[in-house]
Design a protein around this nucleic acid. Structure first.
Lengths: 140, 140
DNA sequence: TGAGTAGTTGACGTTAACGTAAACGTAAGG
DNA sequence: CCTTACGTTTACGTTAACGTCAACTACTCA
């Protein structure tokens, strides 16, 4: 079969660190915490596409304010899609909780955005006022 | 004039802590960091409506993953709506940056929600499969 | 008057998420 | 062969955001 050559590329820790603008120290920490699992070539770490995907998810989690252990829990959810009945039920419950939190977070963001808009509108008005009075003076 | 009696109520640190489910230690910390400014009655802290409003904003900020100093910066933005021209321009720029970050965060959330949906759909399917095969067995 | 209850100010402890430095290994290049 | 670049582990340092005493004050109430 024509084995597709997609995703066979590998990366050193330095390459990955530079690409995602994190330090190699951070990558090693994420590995210690069970968030990444690079291959080894002797002692050196070899990262593959799946590690890049995971790193992307890690960084997204961080942007959402998650702790590393919360991020790992989300990976665990993802990985254990194939369990037994009780397992799956628990999982669906946790997924529901996460969804609720995310939706609440969206509301918080919308409220914060609305606040920003109000403040910006005031500031914009104040600024136009200042500038219009400046024009008057310069025409005196 | 009929001075409206709205918002004249005050709160002790314990009351406020219980209402918002934070510790009094946290409230004192927020004060140290310049996020809250309760009155004093002798040595005791007296919180008013404006402090409650601020606390609400603090907790919202925390839910969005902001640090205390980021939260304070946002308060500073709010408070300095009445500055001079350069000040206002700088402010509008910062407001724009915050808005961009918040919008990016919304996208992250939407992506995370989409991921959750996919996982939940898979888990749900797996669960139904298990249950249907269980029914078959019980009818054997 | 004595015991609670709630508040105060230090000050030290703790956890997460890295930063930073030391001491070492290894492959490439001049 | 020696340097340079990049990697490794080990371990201690740092910052934020509190937690947790300890020692003290002030008020109330039986």
């Amino acid at each position: 079969m024509d084995q597709t050559e997609t995703g066979n590329q590998t990366y050193s820790i330095g390459q990955l660190a530079e690409e995602f603008d994190v330090t190699s120290r951070a990558l090693r920490l994420y590995e210690e915490e069970g968030l990444l699992n690079p291959l080894r070539e002797g002692t050196r770490r070899i990262y593959r596409e799946r590690d890049r995907v995971r790193l992307r998810l890690i960084l997204r989690g961080k942007r959402l304010g998650w702790s590393l252990s919360e991020i790992r829990e989300s990976f665990d959810l993802y990985d254990s899609s194939h369990g037994e009945e009780a397992q799956l039920e628990l999982m669906l419950e946790k997924l529901g909780q996460r969804r609720d939190v995310l939706n609440a977070q969206k509301k918080d963001i919308d409220n914060a955005l609305a606040d920003l808009e109000r403040i910006a509108a005031n500031a914009g008005a104040a600024l136009r006022e200042i500038r219009s009075s400046q024009r008057k003076l310069s025409h005196g």
